[in-house]
């Protein structure tokens, strides 16, 4: 759906952490854009500054230099147009609130009528398949269900971009597949633009419409890859496609190279 103006624009983003033992450059020079309705996966070797990048996108960290722009205006702090799903669902959901209370909390300060708020919450819980768990507390649910609650909270917030930070790293493989399909489904049916950070190559190829491969820290974009798989995907057939294997091999090689060599500034290459 490229329509001229991008939804998210990151230009020459650089983040240096000052510390007593010297400065650490986490992100060197990072640029990319993202259009409305896209699902972009960001992969990179572990410890490559993915989380730093994500926090800069979400306005939780101030970049040292460079810009993050959302709909043409710079991001200087957490924005109502973004919602973050953290990896540590156990620490991001509030155990003293019920599932419903957790989803509702970010909506309290929005000027919504009680009825609209209730409907929004119910609708979000419905969308993640948890309408029956509204009155439970998060710790009474399994890890996968807790992450569903976090996703419900994010979509109830009705952001323009959903930012997910390795959301499924802490759940078992079966649950993970279900959650991946949930993200695909939300993306397809609701058209939510999503930035999905992961270290899992298969996951990035399976989920994404585009995959950004990051270099080792200090981080740059190594490759910007278009995933030309059909939009209707499922765990069995999609992963068995020869094209899937090609793409995953391609990402894999890039990451291996990123791990070995020092970062070389690569221009965005599209493989068609």
């Amino acid at each position: 759906m490229p329509d001229g103006s991008p939804l998210l624009r990151v230009e020459h983003l650089r983040k240096v952490y000052a510390s007593a033992t010297g400065d650490v450059e986490a992100v060197a020079d990072l640029s990319f854009t993202m259009d409305h309705g896209e699902l972009v996966c960001i992969v990179g070797p572990s410890g490559c500054g993915k989380t730093t990048l994500l926090k800069c996108l979400a306005g939780l960290l101030r970049p040292t230099s460079g810009v993050v722009e959302m709909d043409g205006s710079p991001v200087t702090g957490p924005s109502p147009a973004m919602a973050v799903v953290f990896q540590e669902y156990g620490r991001s959901l509030y155990p003293w609130l019920t599932v419903r209370g957790n989803v509702e909390l970010p909506l309290r300060h929005q000027k919504l009528s009680r009825a609209v708020r209730d409907r929004t919450v119910s609708d979000a819980l419905e969308a993640v398949g948890l309408p029956h768990a509204a009155r439970s507390h998060p710790w009474q649910l399994s890890g996968g269900m807790q992450q569903r609650v976090a996703i419900a909270r994010a979509i109830a917030y009705r952001p323009e971009v959903l930012i997910m930070d390795e959301p499924f790293a802490a759940v078992d493989a079966q649950t993970r597949a279900d959650l991946e399909d949930l993200v695909r489904e939300l993306h397809l049916t609701r058209g939510i633009s999503t930035v999905f950070v992961t270290h899992d190559i298969d996951e990035s190829v399976y989920l994404g419409r585009r995959v950004l491969v990051l270099s080792h820290a200090p981080t740059r974009v190594r490759e910007d890859l278009v995933i030309d798989l059909p939009p209707e995907r499922d765990q069995l057939t999609t992963r068995a496609l020869p094209r899937f294997t090609e793409l995953r091999t391609r990402v894999y090689e890039q990451i291996q190279r990123a791990k070995r060599g020092p970062a070389e500034a690569g221009p965005a290459i599209s493989v068609g």
Partner: peptide
């Protein structure tokens, strides 16, 4: 917990 506070920040509570 720092993640709890960050969550609150990101949702502009």
């Amino acid at each position: 917990d720092s993640v709890m506070l960050e969550t609150a920040d990101s949702y502009r509570i």
